[in-house]
Amino acid sequence: MKGIFKSKPKTPTDLVRQTRDLLTYVDRVGIESREPKRDEKMADLGKLIRELKSILYGSSEAEPVSDACSQLTQEFFRENTLRLFIVCLPKLNLETRKDATQVVANLQRQQVQSKLIACEYLEKNIDLMDILIAGYEDPDMALHYGAMLRECIRHQSVARYVLESEHMKKFFDYIQLPNFDIAADAGATFKELLTRHKSTVAEFLSKNYDWFFADYNLKLLESTNYITRRQAIKLLGDMLLDRSNSGVMTRYVTSRDNLRILMNLLREQSKSIQIEAFHVFKLFVANQNKPPDIVSILITNRNKLLRLFADFKTDKEDEQFEADKSQVVKEIAALEPKGNEHEQAG
């Protein structure tokens, strides 16, 4: 078997081929195999993947060479190498897993003749996303698959697939997994999905408004877990304040249920949560077409709110925040009851 390596592998294309051969072997024999030379082959595989990585990222001695990178990329996606990488990842040792993850991540950005061939490949092999996402359920694989996944959803079509899939619902659980590192990784992916590709996100949110925000409120904003609430309120602000989501925002701020949740968040002990909540709350107040029930809630709580805002400060001076705050205070102070309802300050 040594024969393959006698003449030192030179071209990136060769390296990819050899890697693929070894991965095919690993895929076939399985992890517990006592087949002779297995360890040796695993070691060779580790070295090969490391070489691929140093071609793509460069090393302390050399910058990456774009020609070599595109040769590598081309050969990689010419056949089903990515699938092998993903499927065999659990059988590799930790160091090789990390290298493999970095190789896969990098390849998502490599252009060959100004085309992202990784994207074309993934569109034809979109089921790979299912494997990557399910990785969050396996503590050993979660961080590796998670890192790959975040790179793959840089492609808009891939992100759209994930957004529209049933997997979206699972993220509400993944981001609350007890393992902090995994939960945080899932949180980063979730955020990326909901903020990166503006038009796709806007489309997703308006199509899935009902279940998405119901779950978002119930499972995230009203979670008992501090970190979940904190990240959720931050992300909610990011989504609603994005111009491309203005339609969704307009809808969101007409719901008294949403307002109730936001007002509860405003009262949290945590300064971070309070401040993020303010950035969403201000949208309810700024809305020029406030429904009567929103107005009446605001009027009922006017004194409490004004008292709260009186000593509501950010740590560092923040002019924008102060300006927003005084605007909100002004609006609330000037509110008149609509329809037949009576003001009942108290």
Partner: peptide, 15 residues
């Protein structure tokens, strides 16, 4: 990778 800016931090360790 810096997600928020979508920029690639790394191009090669030497640089």
């Amino acid at each position: 990778y810096n997600l928020s800016h979508g920029s690639y931090v790394s191009s090669g360790s030497s640089s």
